[in-house]
Computed example of a mutant assay.
Amino acid sequence: MRNGSIPGARGRVRPLTLLGDPALHTPCADVTDFGPELAALVEDLFATMYAANGVGLAANQVGEPLRVFVYDCPDDEDVRHLGHVVNPRLVEADGVVLRGPEGCLSLPGLEAGTERYDHAVVEGFTMTGDPITIHGTGWFARCLQHECDHLEGTVYADRVTGWRHRRLMRQVARTSWGSQG
């Protein structure tokens, strides 16, 4: 396999936007230019996601307020799902609501039990403008919902309630990056 066919092989690793940065709570703008800058952003997102050992990454997590995310995430049957979505819309989130551990590259080292549906469908476009529909179940459905949330200006911590939320916020305050806010 040539390096050009491996997602992120040509991308550069960008600094991650961490909780506390207003960019994470600002809805992202639609992509209107499907040119080489978008392709470079997708490559950078893959490179950054892999460098941070993530399974998904949204553009606003690297400081780009655009509706784009990448993923390399297994489902509950351990089937690998790899790709990217431009201008995604979460068109279905249904099935059983499960509370499971959820983490985020913008809250490094932390996780909390977060409720998500076990089925999700996302519609959007590839970086070349071709329409795509992505169906996810289990862990992959959680990933799709998580990344779509990012583009709406929501992080998983916003979905955690009660004592779980209070515990997570105490953990954030004890981190080196969370105590700077």
Rank of each mutant, 00 (worst) to 15 (best):
Trp139Lys: 00
Leu16Ile: 15
Tyr117Ile: 03
Glu64Trp: 14
Gly20Pro: 11
Glu147Leu: 01
Glu115Ile: 00
Asp30Lys: 14
Val172Asn: 11
Gly162Ala: 01
Val122Leu: 07
Gly95Ser: 03
Ile134Cys: 08
Gly103Glu: 03
Leu90Phe: 07
Leu151Glu: 11
Cys143Ser: 01
His150Gly: 05
Ala59Asp: 03
Gly162Ser: 02
Ala52Thr: 06
Ile132Met: 13
Thr126Gly: 04
Gly83Lys: 04
Glu64Leu: 01
Gly8His: 09
His119Cys: 05
Phe125Ala: 08
Ala29Val: 06
Glu147Cys: 06
His146Ile: 01
Val121Arg: 15
Gly11Ser: 10
Phe125Ser: 08
Leu19Trp: 15
His146Met: 02
Thr26Met: 07
Gly129Arg: 01
Leu16Cys: 13
Ile132Arg: 10
Ala157Cys: 01
Cys28Asp: 07
Asp94Leu: 06
Ala9Leu: 02
Asn87Ser: 05
Gly83Gln: 06
Ala120Leu: 07
Ala173Lys: 15
Phe125Thr: 08
Leu144Tyr: 06
Pro36Met: 09
Gly153Thr: 05
Asp118Leu: 07
His135Thr: 13
Ala23Val: 14
Gln61Leu: 09
Asp118Tyr: 05
Ala29Gln: 12
Tyr71Asn: 08
Thr126Cys: 03
Asp72Val: 00
Cys28Thr: 13
Leu107Asn: 10
Ala157Leu: 04
Ser106Asn: 11
Asp44Lys: 08
Asp78Val: 03
Leu98Pro: 00
His146Arg: 04
Asn3Ile: 02
Val68Trp: 04
His25Thr: 13
Thr48Trp: 12
Asn60Ala: 02
